[in-house]
């Protein structure tokens, strides 16, 4: 295989990992605080639709992204209301949110644009353009002729949208917030032993709402990235299970930020390979594309089964907190 081909696959790995990483970090904040969230998919989907629609209407991608974050936050509040205030089943709430988003996006997009549940194609300032780092080559022919180091710089490191770089920066930031600040300590404590946090005079409800809202913001960015950076419009069901792959990555990463980056890069690589090569021929054996698609899920089940190191979720995850009376 040619060197440039490898670089190109890695380049698309980075692009495909970004929404996974954002959603995975979103789930990290929520689940570390003890709120299971299987509604990542729905929040991303709704954010994708609203960011594309508002970006088209306003002609400004940043306004679009804000709208997407707002939509995602609305669903976060529903999830918070169900699982924190009314102490309902967090998993069922997540399922409901996924369906709500899946239905509403098509209804609204159809009613606004009448194009069978998609938004018009975004152009110019209505979408995120690639950022070219100083000195990087931009034409494919120039890159092909350049030396390997320049190829890596121009193809892999330069030329991504701003969100890709932001999402990478969010990894150390999340680590710092969760493991180096008082807020992070409390947030993690509330996911392990909420009663202890409550005894210390800190509001469990407030902390959990904050974590759920952080989750909403990150899912909103992830959705906006899908519709305004990775692609240039919203299409029906465009998240295509990414919310669940992110959930899988979160388990794979054992609820840790740096591990989340590695897990998302791995799952992104699998997607990039599946997109580029379809069936892979290795000697006599053909690896079918379906195996590449299913591999993130299979790996997660194996990890969950505890055969390769055990994944232990936050102890109070999924349980509503009832103050003793």
């Amino acid at each position: 295989m040619e060197f440039l081909t490898i670089i190109q696959v890695l380049d698309s790995t980075l692009r495909l990992s970004t929404p996974l990483l954002l959603a995975c970090l979103a789930g990290l904040f929520s689940e570390r605080a003890g709120i299971f969230d299987i509604g990542l998919e729905g929040k991303m989907l709704l954010a994708a639709m609203f960011s594309a629609a508002i970006a088209f209407a306003s002609g400004n991608v940043w306004v679009g992204m804000l709208a997407g974050i707002g939509a995602s936050l609305a669903l976060s509040l529903v999830h918070g209301l169900a699982s924190i205030t009314f102490r309902g089943n967090q998993l069922i709430s997540g399922v409901a949110i996924n369906f709500l988003a899946s239905g509403i996006t098509v209804l609204v997009a159809q009613s606004w644009f009448g194009q069978g549940g998609r938004t018009p194609t975004l152009q110019g300032a209505a979408r995120f353009e690639p950022v070219h780092l100083p000195g990087a080559l931009t034409r494919i022919r120039d890159i092909a002729d350049a030396n390997p180091l320049m190829q890596v710089y121009s193809e892999l490191i330069s030329g991504h949208t701003i969100i890709v770089y932001i999402s990478l920066l969010l990894v150390p930031l999340s680590w710092w917030v969760l493991f180096q600040t008082r807020f992070g300590l409390r947030l993690r404590a509330v996911g392990e032993n909420p009663a202890a946090v409550d005894t210390a005079g800190i509001s469990v409800v407030r902390l959990r709402y904050m974590s759920v809202l952080i989750c909403g913001v990150l899912c909103g960015i992830a959705g906006a990235y899908l519709a305004t950076a990775l692609q240039a419009q919203f299409v029906k069901e465009m998240t295509a299970g990414r919310g669940f792959i992110a959930l899988a990555a979160l388990i794979f990463a054992k609820w840790k930020p740096w591990n989340a980056l590695y897990a998302c890069l791995l799952f992104g690589l699998l997607q990039a390979i599946a997109v580029r090569f379809q069936n892979i021929q290795i000697g006599e054996v053909t690896i079918p594309v379906q195996l590449m698609e299913a591999l993130p899920y299979i790996l997660t089940v194996v990890i969950l089964a505890g055969f390769i190191g055990k994944a232990i979720p936050p102890r109070a995850g999924g349980e509503p907190y009832v103050k003793e009376r």
């Binding site: 009314f86 309902g88 089943n89 709430s93 409901a96 369906f99 709500l100 899946s102």
Partner: peptide, 13 residues
């Protein structure tokens, strides 16, 4: 989705 939300998650409401 609304039926799942109200009968399942927001049952207590």
């Amino acid at each position: 989705a609304l039926v799942i939300l109200f009968t399942g998650a927001l049952d207590n409401m």
